[in-house]
């Protein structure tokens, strides 16, 4: 359980060390991608705890989900539909669901 946390911290350190900054207009897209990847990570943790972890599904899910979310928001932007909120809501709900399942697993143990 410590490895993912350490990895996240390392990632944050790398991100802060290298001053890459997104243009402000794309901040929204990155936010959605971030939410999607957060969802994937929690999903992966959950499936790992349920002994159903699949490496390929996890990795592909991570990237495809984030890209799809960004694409969706981008299209929504073009069409004048604020799909940004829809995506955040959906991913937020899923994150909470996954978290709840992970919590239950730890409580049962």
């Amino acid at each position: 359980m410590t490895l993912p946390i350490l990895a996240v911290l390392a990632g944050i350190a790398i991100g802060l060390l290298f001053p890459v900054s997104m243009p402000v207009e794309y901040g929204k897209f990155l936010a959605v991608a971030l939410l999607a990847s957060l969802d994937s990570v929690f999903g992966g943790l959950r499936s790992g705890l349920e002994e159903k972890f699949d490496n390929t599904i996890f990795i592909s899910g991570f990237f495809v989900n984030s890209l799809l979310a960004v694409l969706l928001v981008f299209i929504g932007d073009r069409l004048g539909i604020d799909l940004y909120y829809v995506a955040s809501l959906a991913f937020g709900l899923r994150i909470f669901q996954n978290l709840a399942i992970i919590r239950r697993y730890f409580l049962k143990k």
Partner: peptide
């Protein structure tokens, strides 16, 4: 899947930092 998870988490951390900035 440890390696995969760690890799994904690193990417996640980078994204977090960039988004924060």
């Amino acid at each position: 899947g440890r390696a995969a998870l760690a890799f994904v988490c690193v990417v996640l951390g980078i994204m977090l930092a960039v988004q924060f900035r």
